[in-house]
């Protein structure tokens, strides 16, 4: 049965876990903002009338979506030092990997968002004399972003969970911090349970938030 739980280890581990959690959050936020920006560009490329641009963007998105994230993490960890000629460290490698990987996923959401804006909106913007860039920037993208906000946030929750996969290259995130403490104190059971509770609390709260947001967006429409 359950070995007598040692809750002291949990208390002792808090500062270390906090550092790990901060990295997990940093990774999430960087990959989210970078991913949404790059993803929007990808979406525009996929909807472009220039065939090579369209195909290149489609190939990028479809390739990344077909490979497991762990493999993508391993790929970048291997290739970035080869390209730059010097090791960049697991944490920096993770930041670059997640930004470029998430761009493919945010890009697909933004593409659906852009397509959800009625065609008449673009026509009306262009009729006002706005350029393509202006009509995207001021008319289409704000609406697309607004329509897709719940989906973008849901993707961010998935992203936050996925950051735990930097385990594969040994980056020091929340999970890694818990594992290390668990080993140091020889109390892995407590630490795994505790870290699972932290992930659950954060993701559950965020998903509740998304649901409320969804309800509000639905009413406005």
């Amino acid at each position: 049965m359950l070995p007598n739980l040692d809750l002291e280890v949990v208390g002792a581990s808090l500062p270390f876990l906090w550092t790990g959690l901060l990295f997990s959050l940093k990774l999430t936020l960087v990959a989210m903002s970078g991913g949404i920006v790059c993803g929007t560009l990808l979406a525009l490329a996929r909807l472009s009338s220039i065939a090579p641009l369209r195909n290149a963007a489609a190939a990028y998105v479809n390739t990344l979506r077909a490979i497991p994230l762990v493999m993508v993490i391993l790929w970048f960890f291997l290739v970035i030092p080869l390209l730059t000629g010097k090791p960049v460290g697991a944490e920096n490698s993770a930041l670059i990997t997640f930004t470029l990987f998430e761009a493919a996923f945010y890009g697909e959401i933004m593409r659906a968002g852009i397509q959800s804006v009625p065609r008449g909106q673009v026509a009306a913007a262009r009729a006002l004399g706005l350029t393509y860039a202006q009509s995207m920037r001021h008319v289409v993208l704000p609406q697309a972003f607004r329509n897709m906000l719940p989906l973008l946030l849901t993707q961010t929750i998935i992203l936050f969970q996925d950051t735990s996969l930097v385990y594969a290259i040994g980056a020091k995130d929340l999970l890694k911090a818990a594992e290390v403490t668990g080993k140091n104190y020889n109390r892995p059971v407590e630490m795994y349970v505790f870290v699972a509770l932290i992930y659950f609390a954060i993701c559950f709260a965020l998903s509740r938030l998304v649901r409320r947001l969804q309800a509000r967006v639905a009413i406005v429409r």
Binding site: E179, Y192, A196, Y199, F204
Partner: peptide
């Protein structure tokens, strides 16, 4: 099952 990362669930 949706709100805990798969890797953490594996360890659990």
């Amino acid at each position: 099952f949706r709100n805990v990362p798969l890797l953490v669930q594996m360890f659990l």
